Simulated assay, not measured.
Amino acid sequence: MNSDSEVELLCTPPEIRQAANDTIQNLLPEKSQNKYKTVYKNFQDWCSNKNIKSFTENVLLAYFSELSTKYKPSSLWTFYSMLRSTLDLNNSINIENYSKLRAFLKRQSEKHVAKKAKTFTPEQLNNFINEAPDEKYLATKVALIMGIMGACRAAELHSMQITDLEDHGSIFMVNVPNTKTKIARKFTVTGNFYTIVKKYLNLRPTDISQTIFFLKFQNGKYHSHRIGINKFGAMGKDIATFLKLPDCNLYTGHCFRRSSATLLVDAGGDITALKRHGGWRSTTVAEGYIDNSEKNKADTANKIYSSITPQPVSTSTKYMQQTETETINLQNSAPHIQFNGCSNFTVNFINK
Rank of each mutant, 00 (worst) to 15 (best):
T315G: 00
G220T: 06
G191R: 07
T309R: 03
A143Y: 14
Q44R: 09
K186M: 06
V176L: 14
S54L: 13
V7M: 12
L138A: 09
Y137L: 08
T325D: 04
R281S: 13
L243K: 03
K100P: 00
L27T: 12
I93Y: 13
K115H: 15
K295N: 13
V313E: 06
K111L: 13
V59L: 10
N94H: 14
N332V: 06
N175Q: 13
F213E: 02
A117K: 03
A261M: 02
I93Q: 15
F213T: 03
L61F: 13
N302V: 08
I271H: 02
L9K: 14
K237N: 06
S48D: 09
S75T: 15
E110W: 09
R153P: 00
T195E: 14
T190P: 03
K216S: 10
N97M: 12
E326Q: 09
D266W: 01
E135F: 08
F172C: 04
A261Y: 01
Q321D: 08
V313Y: 03
K37Y: 10
Y80T: 03
L105V: 11
K182W: 06
N94S: 13
K100E: 11
R17D: 10
H168I: 03
N230V: 11
P335Y: 12
N49H: 13
Q210I: 07
N329T: 05
R185W: 01
N296S: 10
T38D: 12
D45R: 01
T188K: 06
L144Q: 07
G147K: 04
V176S: 06
A261W: 02
I208S: 00
N192E: 11
G269N: 01
Q322P: 01
S5I: 07
A20C: 04
E57D: 02
V197I: 11
D4C: 04
Q218G: 01
T346F: 08
A261V: 01
F242R: 04
W77R: 08
E324Q: 09
V285R: 02
P14Y: 14
D238C: 05
F213A: 01
N58P: 04
I239D: 01
A114Q: 03
T86W: 15
R17L: 14
